[in-house]
């Protein structure tokens, strides 16, 4: 079972992603509520893939992405963006994010995206 780390400051969104992945062979190994926590949890939990929100307190998703990539250049990070954040998504891709999903998204789409990134 592949391990997913969810990084999002909104508890509602963390829960949504967790529920969406219930029906698939993806294990949620951790939930982080800001970028800083996300980086720490990545180092500790070694997930196969990360869903990374963009705007968060403490440390933004882009800063967290950079820190994770510096620690593990192979890290697979999917950016979770809201509408109107095209510029930030571009910056994230330049900094090593594998791809992105735009909220709101359906569970099949999220799973397909994760599968593709993991080469399943």
């Amino acid at each position: 079972m592949k391990k997913l780390l969810i990084v999002d400051d909104a508890a509602f969104m963390r829960l949504s992603i967790r529920n969406m992945m219930n029906n698939y062979d993806i294990e949620i190994v951790g939930e982080a509520a800001n970028g800083l926590m996300g980086v720490e949890m990545y180092k500790e939990l070694h997930p196969d893939v990360v869903t990374m929100d963009i705007t968060m307190p403490e440390m933004s998703g882009i800063e967290a992405l950079k820190a994770i990539k510096a620690h593990d250049p192979q890290a697979k990070v999917i950016m979770v963006s809201a509408m109107g954040q095209e510029g930030m998504v571009k910056e994230a891709i330049i900094n090593g994010a594998k791809t992105f999903v735009v909220k709101p998204f359906k569970e099949e789409f999220l799973y397909q995206t994760i599968s593709k990134v993991l080469g399943l």
Partner: peptide
């Protein structure tokens, strides 16, 4: 608890 994304004090967004 809220479904809204916090943007800044007193400003929230549906994402």
């Amino acid at each position: 608890e809220s479904k809204f994304k916090y943007i800044m004090p007193a400003v929230y967004r549906k994402e």
